[in-house]
Design a protein around this nucleic acid. Structure first.
Lengths: 208, 208, 208, 208
DNA sequence: AATGAATGAGGCTTCATTCAT
DNA sequence: CATGAATGAAGCCTCATTCAT
């Protein structure tokens, strides 16, 4: 029924994608509306037809970030083993192709959340969603049964997420010096260490 | 010979303290030079007698952050047990009195580092200093001898720092909702869990 | 098809004209962007849509000055006698109606050229264009054939231009005290004297 | 009687010399009081003990310029021949050693005179003094008796000064590209041409 | 006599936002 | 729906001038 599906552009989507690129490159407050309009290939005024203000764009992006994270969660949930789930979750920020979340953007988002309550609420919401999902996955994991650490699933999740966020912050520092692939490799090593710490039997020898 | 020690203000210090307050409250790019001058109780022009530019103020703060971290490291090195060392290191960002580093500021600093190479270098430098120090502490710790995880000291440090940074990011989200003391308590719990994971024998009972 | 030719203002032109007025009145460095915007009846920001910076405005004016000089040159080239050519060239700065070059502005331009290499290049370019044109006019003039001074066309041009510039500098001193017409009259006298010196036989009687 | 003649510095003189250097280098309005104080090796505040304002410094410099020009005039008056007098007068701006007048400064002075009436008065005064002196020299010159041009001494002076000023403006454009010696050489050629035009018998062949 | 810390107005420039077309 | 010209507040920074020491 819908005509011109390929010629009628989804303006909001187009704008958000452009904004995402700019935000990841320069941060929220270093990005001007003109930057976004240029990246999107449209006029400045048109942005205001779909978003009330620059802040609205930022919020919308945070919403999109939430959806991406939900998708990620879904993929993690479907992974055959717990280790693979964790690998998916913890290295998501390493692949910087596609409309994926760049680590610089996420760090900026948290920084913004520190001052802007509405962003903070959004980010908290995203985070809680993600953590609930992961907590479930972990609670169901057979590895948890023999885990020697005595931590509750939620506690494990907190630790995992903290490590993931911390790695993201680190990545930001080496953004242009290390390739995404290299970072991913390094990150995977850390995930496996964490996994071994958490779920392997203590007497199993480390393999590397 | 120097009289009036109390009336002669240390302008650079005064400015940096004011800037720190503003940066923590609003972030670098949301803080105007006027904000800083007002917070410091001086005129805008006076800032420029001591700092060449706004960026110079940011860099100077980062330098100060480095010194604080070095002091923290010293204290951690002197702690009687490894667990106490880690507690000092990992919860430093929780006490927000005194000229201490606010977590919001640190997250903003990392975000800025993602785009500004000179800031990135500074932060990398600070980080490396901190990590070297902690790696030494860990390498010397008797707990490492019986550690079942097979990780090298540096690897352990990386994990610890990632968790610490990740916690800081989380803190940013709840800045005004949770008291520093509460956050500290929660954070200590995580540290102990991490410590147990890393250094305690699996069959040893948890302490706290 | 283009309607409203009278309501659509040529912004760059409007800005340059306003800037010209301000620069002639106050000099480059005494003129603020606000002065220009006010003189043009527009907002400050709008200037930046058409010119990248204040310096760009100065350069653009210098370019326009070049074009005016080329027009002047054309008119001089078409004059029936050499004397008339010279009168056109040497008294151009006396009539301060129309979008013409004010002498105060030109003196300021040279002063600026003394420190700003990019302006210096522009002015040199303008000057060279003018001098080449005049040299040609002189070389072709029948008066040169019997000229007793033995100077090459280029040398004559240099002298003429020096005298013209020197007169302009003088004019600057009496800008508001003497009318343009008076200055022109006085200037014409000097031109004729120079002309007689250069091209008339000594025994020929003065004309004016 | 005067003690410490060599240790007690003549502050006003010292300040003016420094200001002169700065003005020649950067122009009046690009020179800050701090620039001057630095060049003079004193504090900013001290300048205000001797001069009421920046404008007062500019005026004082113009006064000094007047004195220098008077000295120049004296030397020109003492020259054995008219040609030598003219050479002294017209090439003064070429030697840029000593506390002499730099051409960039003079052009800037005229530009300033175009807007600042008090400076304009000063410059006019200087100019008139100079022109009177030169007119006298010319009136007395034996060359004037046989001069074929029929110009009055004052008219000749006007022409000479115009050419001199015009040359100075030109010099400003090539300030850093041509050495003072080269400029002087070139300038001398022009002076001699002008002299020949004015005072040589028409039938004398040009030599150089 | 001399210093230089301190002020604050003002200059250049950017940018979120509006609106006529 | 779309454009982009236009606005003006605000940001960073400079600088003439003052004044306590």
């Amino acid at each position: 029924m819908a005509v011109q599906t390929d010629t009628a552009p989804d303006r909001p989507e187009q704008i958000l994608r452009a904004a995402m690129v700019c935000f990841a490159k320069r941060g929220f407050h270093q990005t001007s509306m003109h930057d976004i309009s240029e990246e999107a290939g449209i006029s400045v005024g048109l942005i205001y037809r779909y978003f009330a203000s620059k802040e609205a764009v930022i919020s919308a992006i945070a919403e999109e970030h939430k959806k991406e994270l939900q998708g990620l969660l879904e993929r993690a949930r479907c992974a055959p083993t717990l280790l693979e789930s964790l690998e998916i979750l913890l290295t998501a920020h390493c692949c910087e192709d596609q409309p994926q979340m760049h680590c610089a953007f996420v760090v900026d988002l948290f920084a913004e959340a520190g001052r802007n309550p509405s962003i903070a609420n959004l980010v908290r919401d995203v985070l809680e969603t993600g953590m609930k999902g992961v907590t479930e996955v972990i609670a169901r994991a057979p590895e948890m049964r023999n885990a020697p650490h005595g931590m509750k699933p939620r506690e494990v999740t907190e630790l995992i997420f903290a490590a993931a966020r911390g790695s993201m912050m680190r990545d930001v520092l080496e953004h242009s010096q290390v390739s995404a692939a290299e970072r991913r490799e390094r990150q995977l090593k850390v995930v496996r260490q964490l996994w071994r710490l958490l779920f392997n039997h203590a007497n199993e020898p480390a393999l590397a």
